[in-house]
């Protein structure tokens, strides 16, 4: 039974990170209908900037997290400004391919640095002894990661519900022409959506980097695995991203915990999200909380 609860705990931790990573994707999709295939690379660069500042420059670790979030904020904003703004109104394949091309460019840039091939880990700044609750243990990094993630997601939800900028972003996602007519600058909202996505990606990158260590392959793999998450939750719903993330984390950890080793299987945790994804796409393509689009000729 302890094993069961242990898996639930790790599932929720992994799931909340997925939710944070998926949040950025949803933000961009919600406002500009662009699926960002370079999200994993932004996550990775956020984590690497934080590591570079902490270890090579000696900045205190919390400050370096915040600086890296600010840097990716502007990085993602400039990406939107330089590459995506001139593609507004182009066919969807062009936009998707531009983000794939961007992913490739950032890949190349990261391979130029020392982070491309080697593994690093953040210096430990939390107690090493895991917390034990009724026999279920959870490490401090996971616990702090979970708390920061929930705070960030709560903050983002508040931002969208209450703040003026958040409301204008929701307005743009609802109706671009309508929001233009009430004086919202649509390109600025797109830029802001990318920027906030970059910020949340950096936060996700720092948390993942603390929990699993810094490895470029695992970090940019997050950019692919968030797709099952957002499809499950619905591509344009923040609540969907959170719930989808946690469900996907649980599915993955349960698959890894119970299927691996039995029936001669291995690595099921990696493939399970995609199997679930195919099934969702066949039966409920708009996810749990996604909006059905009505099309007209």
């Amino acid at each position: 039974m302890t094993y069961f609860f242990q898996i639930i705990i790790s599932g929720v931790v992994v799931g909340s990170i997925y939710a944070l990573a998926a949040l950025g994707l949803v933000l961009i999709y919600k406002s500009s209908r662009v699926a960002n295939f370079a999200h994993g690379q932004i996550i990775a660069s956020g984590a690497f900037i934080a590591f570079f500042l902490t270890v090579d420059k000696g900045v205190p670790i919390f400050f370096s997290f915040i600086i890296s979030m600010i840097v990716t904020f502007f990085l993602a904003m400039s990406v939107e400004r330089i590459f995506l703004r001139r593609l507004i109104g182009e066919p969807i394949i062009s936009v998707i391919m531009v983000t794939i091309g961007l992913a490739s460019i950032i890949d190349g840039l990261i391979y130029f640095t020392k982070f491309g091939t080697e593994n690093y880990s953040f210096p430990a700044f939390l107690p090493q002894e895991p917390v034990s609750l009724w026999g279920v243990s959870i490490s401090w990094t996971q616990l702090v990661g979970l708390i920061i993630t929930s705070l960030l997601i709560g903050g983002f939800s508040w931002f969208f519900k209450k703040s003026t900028v958040g409301i204008s972003m929701r307005a743009v996602s609802d109706d671009q022409f309508g929001s233009m007519s009430v004086g919202i600058s649509v390109p600025r909202v797109f830029g802001l959506a990318w920027a906030t996505a970059g910020l949340s990606a950096a936060a996700a990158g720092c948390i993942i980097g603390n929990i699993t260590g810094l490895n470029f392959e695992t970090l940019h793999a997050f950019g692919i695995v968030v797709f099952p998450v957002v499809i499950l939750g619905g591509l344009d719903s923040i609540l969907g991203a959170v719930i989808g993330g946690i469900i996907m984390g649980l599915i993955q950890q349960f698959a890894a915990g119970y299927l691996d080793g039995n029936f001669g299987l291995s690595g099921t945790g990696d493939v399970m999200p995609y199997l679930v994804l195919l099934i969702i796409l066949l039966f409920k393509p708009h996810g749990l909380f996604g909006i059905h689009e009505i099309e007209r000729v």
Binding site: G101, S104, D107, G108, L109
Partner: peptide, 11 residues
């Protein structure tokens, strides 16, 4: 490093 970079740039 150069391969993905040029490749992405071309796309």
């Amino acid at each position: 490093a150069l391969k993905p970079f040029t490749f992405g740039l071309v796309i």
